[in-house]
Design a protein around this nucleic acid. Structure first.
Lengths: 234, 234
DNA sequence: AACCTGTATTTTGTATACAATAATCGAACG
DNA sequence: CGTTCGATTATTGTATACAAAATACAGGTT
């Protein structure tokens, strides 16, 4: 059964460079407008230029750097404001997907998710929570009936997930609130209430955006204090 | 004056491979589900594997292929239906951008565009038409105040532009209609009428989607007939 | 003194060689 | 005869070497 779908090995190479650079953008190590040379990145991460190039291409796709032919790559700013912008786009896409999914989503899928969330409500496992969150959003995107819309949502989610992993420590407080959000979305979907589901999704993502933006602020503060005390080691 | 912004040299290398593959996807030479090996593409385009890899990464970012670690790249279907899906996403993004731009766009920018379109109305130059079209959409995206939204719109536009270049012959009929669309959008923007501008943009893109989808159908038909008569040469 | 031009250096783009990983096929065993 | 384990093969991932392009600088000319 060849379905490895999401095999996020953080071993080394292209993906490590990409995640590292994303992290540096988030922490403020790389400020907007700065220019990256392939050789420089290559040396800092102790890999050859080939994976660096591919990582840079990936970051270009994610909108974190802009590379010009034969000129190099300039990093785009990526702080709390940009997180909000990112969530604004994500909200736009996911709200529409939710609206479309309301009339197309299979009842069984809804039931399965509801059951999973209810089961989670009893024995709280914050790790599975995040996984289920992704499953829900992914299922809604698929049920939109527009594969490209789903694909674009997945793209945004990829970036957001990387961000989330980076600030996982700081994002503990929001879990309980999002659980209720998810249940409400599922409830409205089950009722085939497109507007209600869309509104629920909208509010859910608005909260998520706030939380993520604050987390990034905290992450940057934390990183700056780490920089002053090199004893903590990076 | 170092501002080459859009230098679409079709010389050779990465960009040529990418455009070639996009064209093959459009024409139906590469059907969805098919698998591409780097070596195969490399040989067909007479380049090494390095630019092929980068082209494949770019196509991944555009959602035309999906590549799995150590497995190869499977091409996603890209026919008229997918064009419609693509335009649905684009519409979503641009309508929102238009709504946001209605209250933020600089009056001077609007006036300049209006003047340009009116000047175009007299002496019709279908080539400049397309350029102005892009300028308008780009200006609206910028005026949205959300750089990431603008960036995502630009991403969609990139793909659409490539498509448009491929089917440039078949897309002659729509120019006159879009001109009026653009003038109406600008009119509503000047009046700070967010809903009106958004609606105008929506209708405009709906027509564009229809036109593009039909063009792709025509392109595929044309390509099939070319294949039957190899005398025409590819 | 300002500007243009030619050269030198830096940086990206491409090609090739090698290593690692996954798919495939075959043989041995239950 | 079916299944599972292992070797082979093909394909991707990485490293290095080379070529092309662009920028920066210096020198000369107007």
């Amino acid at each position: 059964m060849p379905s490895p779908s999401s095999s996020n090995r953080t071993s080394a190479g292209k993906v490590a460079v990409a995640q590292g650079l994303i992290l540096e953008c988030l922490c403020g190590v790389l400020n907007g407008g700065e220019r990256l040379t392939e050789a420089g990145v290559s040396e800092r991460f102790s890999v050859s230029r080939t994976p660096v190039r591919e990582a840079l291409l990936e970051l270009t796709g994610l909108g974190l750097v802009e590379l010009r032919r034969n000129c190099g790559a300039v990093v785009q700013p990526f702080g709390p404001d940009q997180i909000r912008d990112l969530y604004a786009v994500r909200t736009l896409l996911e709200v529409e997907a939710t609206r479309l999914a309301a009339s197309r989503m299979e009842p069984e899928v809804i039931d399965d998710l509801q059951e999973a969330f209810n089961r989670l409500k009893k024995n709280k496992l914050p790790d599975h929570q995040w996984h289920l969150d992704q499953q829900l959003h992914s299922a809604i995107a698929e049920a939109s009936g527009n594969p490209r819309l789903a694909s674009e949502i997945a793209r945004q989610a990829t970036l957001i997930q990387t961000v989330r992993e980076a600030v996982s420590d700081a994002m503990q407080g929001i879990h309980t609130t999002t659980l209720n959000d998810h249940l409400r979305i599922l409830d409205r979907l089950k009722a085939r209430d497109a507007d209600g589901a869309a509104e629920a999704m909208q509010k859910h993502l608005q909260q998520a955006a706030d939380s993520a933006a604050k987390s990034v602020v905290q992450l940057r503060k934390q990183h700056r204090s780490d920089a002053r005390q090199p004893s903590t080691r990076l």
